[in-house]
């Protein structure tokens, strides 16, 4: 009988659902963890990157303690709304579609979308030259949406769960090119894996505002905005920026 009791206890424990109050002094910072250099998980399991440093700087300004939580990209907005974390700093573009689900702070950087392809290949980014090419992007990103809206009839769009998987397929030759955020690709291009690839053409979209997402109507948004102004004004932002890019991305 002992066995059955143990099973029942374990089952009950399984069903017990974590709940926590949003205490003023502790916040959960949500991010993805697969988007270097903005957010990634290192060998020791730590979540690091530009987004996390900015997030922690904001937390310091707001005088709160922040715990970093990761979620996969596909479900990152539902996870925010499910209160799995309190704010989401994951290089997320501010779009009308997303604004229906969450609120955004002022942009904390501005990105562009640009194609990357092998150096050895003549790759033009006008519709005619792109015809029939296989182009990868991450699922549920602005690049993925842009491809579907603008080039769905011209190119074969492949959507990946993570940006890293798209790079793996570009390196293996499955993809002719990738469309993604310029800064993220800049980081990859200077890595060993990206040395045979380069940017192709001008950015196809250059006003990609990146914001921090909070739940709809959450007053945390204003506190984050104030803190953001402060870290820009006192040079904290610039210092973090310089660690990652030799140019300003604000």
């Amino acid at each position: 009988m002992q066995t059955y009791k143990k099973f029942l206890l374990a089952a009950a424990a399984t069903l017990a659902i974590g709940s926590q109050a949003v205490a003023a002094e502790k916040l959960k910072l949500g991010t993805e963890g697969a988007y270097p250099p903005f957010n990634l998980i290192d060998a020791s399991g730590q979540v690091v990157g530009f987004d996390i440093e900015i997030g922690q700087a904001l937390c310091a300004k707001m005088k709160v303690e922040c715990e970093v939580v990761t979620s996969d990209w596909d479900g990152i907005i539902p996870a925010l709304n499910a209160r799995k974390f309190d704010f989401l700093i994951a290089s997320m573009s501010i779009t009308e579609e997303r604004k229906r689900a969450v609120d955004f702070t002022e942009p904390y950087y501005t990105n562009k979308l640009q194609f990357v392809a092998p150096k050895s290949v003549d790759f033009k980014t006008d519709q005619n030259s792109l015809k029939g090419k296989v182009i990868g992007a991450q699922r549920a990103t602005i690049a993925g949406t842009w491809l579907e809206d603008n080039l769905a009839k011209v190119v074969d769009v492949k959507l990946y769960d993570t940006q890293e998987n798209a790079y793996l397929d570009l390196a293996s030759g499955r993809l002719d090119g990738i469309l993604a955020d310029t800064f993220v690709q800049w980081e990859w291009l200077k890595s060993d894996a990206g040395k045979d690839f380069e940017f192709k053409g001008d950015p196809v979209f250059d006003n990609d505002k990146i914001g921090i997402a909070v739940r709809k109507g959450d007053p945390l948004r204003e506190r984050l905005n104030t803190a953001l102004k402060e870290i820009v004004a006192d040079g904290t932002y610039e210092k973090i920026n310089a660690k990652y890019f030799p140019f300003s991305i604000y």
Partner: peptide
């Protein structure tokens, strides 16, 4: 309650 969540584990 303030919030309820299902963790990935749950």
């Amino acid at each position: 309650m303030e919030s309820l969540e299902l963790s990935a584990f749950a």
